[in-house]
């Protein structure tokens, strides 16, 4: 049985300007020790989907529907106290901004120990030694000294390590990493991703990695969900997704990314599309338009207005999720076979 089973999750915000369908019918499952990547642009609902599982989405304006079973227990029906039991113990979250996620007035040690003492009754000395050991484990030198320092004495990368230590102290089953490296430099990003990967293997926990960067998600995850306008438009293993994207959005996204290393973009490699040339410098295959306003989604498929493969039916009916033709466990949500 899956560790976490999310079925038809919907998060709708009722605002003055109408219903904002931030997440609209998302289903996925996560097994023990899996790494699931969720990729999407801002407003795609990738963060809201995960945070709503933990009750971290402001509830009166938001209506959360569907089911989210963690070890058979539905998270969506839980009250505040029970959710707090889950948060940190069963599911931990690390956020993008390591600067604002730590209290500037409290020593790092105190903030770490608080995680342990709120969830279990343990002597302070034990809490301290366990926190110190965890700081050391996430690669912070001299953890004994660092415990007594304040957040501003840590660099961005070090703070993110502290956040990871904090998230892992209670030995959660699931770690939700919401854009964990977006605020960091490339070389520090590589360090943090490696750290998350190592810890995931060592502790055997499941990880949900949320990012706007396809590369980050592709490197870390066994399975990727591509989200657009609150729904999953494609799911599959990163290598498959890269080799043959099935949804026009995934494909357009890959084509529009400049290539970091030799070989050009995905599309060029396949030889599917010529790299358009204007003068001596090449142009990117940009996706026209802007991501849709979740309060005002177009009829039919939300990607239709920007889609190069659009058919008449796309503007009328929203496609259902369907399995890939070759039946490799991949699914996508499009009327067209590209």
């Amino acid at each position: 049985m899956a560790l976490l089973e999310v079925e038809d999750l919907k998060v709708h915000f009722h605002t003055r300007h109408g219903v904002v369908k931030a997440v609209d019918g998302v289903s996925f499952s996560l097994n023990q020790g899996d790494v699931l990547g969720i990729v999407g642009e801002s407003g795609s609902g990738k963060s809201v989907a995960c945070l709503s599982l933990l009750g971290l989405v402001p509830s009166p304006p938001a209506r959360v529907a569907g089911r989210a079973l963690l070890n058979g227990q539905d998270l969506l029906g839980l009250d505040g106290d029970r959710l707090r039991q889950i948060r940190g113990r069963k599911i931990s979250v690390i956020f993008q901004e390591p600067m604002t996620s730590l209290n500037p007035y409290l020593k790092i040690g105190a903030q770490l120990m608080e995680v342990l003492t709120t969830h279990e009754r343990i002597p302070a000395a034990d809490a301290r030694s366990r926190s110190e050991a965890m700081l050391g484990r996430v690669g912070i030198p001299d953890p004994g000294i660092r415990m007594d320092q304040y957040p501003h004495q840590f660099s961005g990368g070090m703070r993110q390590r502290v956040m990871i230590a904090m998230a892992l102290l209670a030995k959660p089953d699931v770690l939700v990493a919401d854009e964990p490296t977006t605020a960091l430099d490339v070389t520090i990003q590589a360090q943090i991703l490696e750290l998350i990967r190592d810890l995931q293997r060592e502790l055997g926990m499941a990880v949900i990695l949320i990012s706007h960067a396809m590369g980050v998600v592709a490197e870390m995850s066994a399975q990727i969900l591509v989200m657009y306008a609150g729904r999953i438009v494609e799911r599959g293993a990163p290598a498959d997704l890269f080799r043959k994207p099935l949804h026009p959005y995934t494909r357009a996204l890959m084509d529009s990314m400049p290539a970091p290393t030799d070989g050009g973009s995905a599309a060029e490699r396949q030889g599917c599309r010529e790299r358009p040339v204007a003068g001596r410098r090449k142009r990117l295959a940009a996706i026209p338009g802007t991501p849709p306003d979740p309060a005002n989604l177009p009829a039919g498929c939300p990607f239709a207005p920007r889609c190069p493969y659009v058919l008449d039916i796309c503007r009328k009916t929203d496609p259902e999720e369907r399995p890939a033709p070759e039946n490799s466990g991949r699914t996508f949500r499009c009327h067209v076979d590209i």
Partner: peptide, 10 residues
């Protein structure tokens, strides 16, 4: 250090 979508360049 740049994360890549392409497994071949990784």
């Amino acid at each position: 250090a740049v994360p890549s979508v392409d497994p071949a360049t990784r």
